[in-house]
Structure formats: structure tokens, C-alpha cells
Design a protein around this nucleic acid. Sequence first.
DNA 1: TAGATTGTTAATCGATTAACAATC
DNA 2: TAGATTGTTAATCGATTAACAATC
Lengths: 223, 223
Amino acid sequence: MSFREPVRDGTGVQGGGGERLSLGVAARLSRYLQVLTQAKKMGRETISSQELADYTHVNSTQIRRDLSGFGKFGKRGVGYNVDSLVSQIRKILRTTGKHNIALFGAGNLGQAIAGSDIFADHGFRVVALFDKDPSKVGQRVNESLTVRAYDDLEKVIREEDVVVGVLAVPTAAAQEVADDLVEAGVKIIFNYSEALLQVPPEVTVHTSSPAVDLLYALYFYLT
Amino acid sequence: MSFREPVRDGTGVQGGGGERLSLGVAARLSRYLQVLTQAKKMGRETISSQELADYTHVNSTQIRRDLSGFGKFGKRGVGYNVDSLVSQIRKILRTTGKHNIALFGAGNLGQAIAGSDIFADHGFRVVALFDKDPSKVGQRVNESLTVRAYDDLEKVIREEDVVVGVLAVPTAAAQEVADDLVEAGVKIIFNYSEALLQVPPEVTVHTSSPAVDLLYALYFYLT
DNA sequence: TAGATTGTTAATCGATTAACAATC
DNA sequence: TAGATTGTTAATCGATTAACAATC
């Protein structure tokens, strides 16, 4: 079977061609990748679709179906090789490269993000940390990051090739930063504040919502 | 997926009776609630299904469909009353009560969570903050929270009626805390570490995954 | 071999969307 | 009234699941 020709079979699964994945498939592949990355760190060599299902809360048949649309990655009776599945999914999601992030807000949350591996593990690099508080500017938060002045935003975004802006600022300040990011040409904004951000249609905002997930889990606990 | 519900009328929509919502409906209602809560804070009196769609990334027809399954909450030509929709959804999700949370880890992330409104806005109250570092025990992190000794876990969980444990601890420490929470009878664990937690089937783990959402947004940006 | 797990099919359920009458 | 937006239908698409042969 050739992977050149775009295979459209009505299942929403495609060959390795040039077409876009559906929203659902892309979201699920990203989740598999997260679990696989961590499994790799823990020294796991193989993982079964059932284990992936336990960790991602996606049905194991769905997982096998998602993966088999792109090739035969598994080994019957054994499972999937963690290493090779990671590279396969990265290829499918086209996220094999490095992508630069600018982080806003050097408070508790900003420092927690700067010090975490969550972004780094997936090819994202925090290349700049901004804060409006002049007394924080110049402060070193880890080996490679120093708090920069907010006024340098546009220049830094351009020079460092930043594609994602992450907002760890107070809710009241979030819209202004978002506006400045849009102005500077950033197309993806990750919002950790509670603000409902107004942005042009070509810009994607993702608002982090731990309480939403909690409400949802609680519903099933209570009923 | 561990939650199966009985099939009703084929539309996935139900009357206001006592039945369980489907996973999808419960998840979406929770998201509407988040946006409505913030809209209320901003002084909005009404909101249209289209605005809700913009903020939640759920189709506006889907939103109207979800809501109309429980009653006629909107006013044609006007939209939905924010206040009344908030109480309606809370009623549907049965989250009108208060629920207590125990937070683990008094580092940057733990302090960020303790100082945020995200949980409080949805009826969750952080009633205890634990840390294993003896030098942090007794430290005050805000008006009502003082870092407690990890050894008091079981006693505090029982006395304070804690239903959710939130892990803001290093990845290497997460499994041990999870085990102790399970032991103490907690059924919902919210995991901010990268660890893949092993828990019994009756316990729900939600692992926060900002990088996953980012990967996913990036895919659509790059293609 | 025996046990385990993939890859795949087929049936059903739920989500998505366009369209539009009802009505505020 | 005129414009806006809900509530609802119908068609289609994607997700979910059980089941099981293939095969490691």
C-alpha cells in the first residue's frame, strides 16, 4: 500500500499525505505523545493500547484505529515501541522542530512554568520572560532566563522568532498583553489568566481551565 | 472510558430528571459555566450563543442544543441572561454546593494555585496546603492558609471533608502522594506533575497538560 | 505452542452543521 | 416594525464500542 496517495475512507483517518488531520485526531495524537514522552522518561520500551487508554481516557480501540491509519506501528502480542511511536507521531503532527515561546509574568505561576519541563519535553523553548515590574527586570530565574523589560516585547518577538505567547499575568493585565502580542504578529496565545480575551479571528487563544476539568470530574463523582 | 450511561432518546439530550449527563454534555456545560462566570465578573448581563461559541470553541448551534435540552433559558433576539444561566447550569451539574480541596506542594506552582480564584469561583475551597519540607511547615501563604505537615494528611482529609487532592509536587514525589490520598479515601486527583499515576479504577486522575494543547494549536498553525 | 495484543470490521451513538421559522 | 437570536429539524460526519481473526 502506498502512503503517497491521500486515502480518504470516510473514517476521518488519512494516509501520510499532505492533508490536515481532523481536530479530534490531532488532539488525541497530542495526548498520546504526552503519555509516551513520560513513559520514555520512565524507561519504558513498549506500551500497549490498553495502557495508553488508561492514561489518556481514550478508548483502546480508538487508539489502535487512530494509529493504524498512518501505518502498522505496533507488534501483535507486544504493543508499541515507545521510542518509535514518539517519532512517528511527531512526524504526523509535524512538530519535530523547535518552537519558541515568550512568557509573560514573573510571579509564582510564571516562575513555575519557566522551571518546568512540560513545554521543553515537547520541543517548546521559553526564550523570553517579561514582567512589567521594573524591580524584577534583570532578575535571573534559571540558568538561561532573565526577566526582560516589557517594552522590548516587539523587538524580542521578532528577533527570537517567537510563535507562542503564554500569559501568566493578573487577569486585569491579560487583554493588554494579548493586544500587544497580536500587534507583534503572534498567532497563538496561551492564557493562564481568567480573562476572556478579545482577539482577531486569525489568532488562536487557549484558556487554561483546571476548575472546568474539576467540575466535570466532580459531576461523575457525585452522581 | 469508565463511565457508561444508559441510552435514552438517541439525541443525547435529556429532561431535567435524575439521569446522568453524557460525558460530552457535562464537559461542555462546565466550559460554558467558566465563561459565564467570568462574563458575570465583567458585568455582562446577557450573552449570545455566538459569543459563548467564540470563547469556548464549541459550535453555537451545539450550545443552543445543549441548553434547550433542559429548558428554554434564552430570549430570542437577545440571548441568555448570564446570572440565570449560571444558576441553571450549576443546578444541572449539581455543583451548587461547596467542595473542599487539599493542595500538595507549597512551591511556586502550589502558591500560584492557592492565590488564584480559579477554583474558588466554581465553589471549590482550598482547605489545606501540605509540604514535606519541614522548614515550610507553619508558613502562612495567604489570609487563610498555613502550610501543614504532610504527616497530618489522613487526619486533615477526614476532618475537613476533602474530596479532591491537587498535586503541585515534583514529578518524582507525585505517586507517593497519590497513594496516600487513595489510602485516605480521596476519589478525585488533579495532577499538575508529569508523572503517570497508577491508581485503582474507582479513582479519577486528571493530568494537566498545557503542552498538549499547545502542540495541537501549533499543528493547525503550521498547516 | 499458549497467551497477548494488534489491526480491522460493522453497528450504533453522539457531534456538527446549515437552515429557518418563531419570536423577542 | 426591523433586526437579532433562539429553538429545532434534518442530514452528515466522526467517535465509540464489541468482536475477532491475524500474528507476534
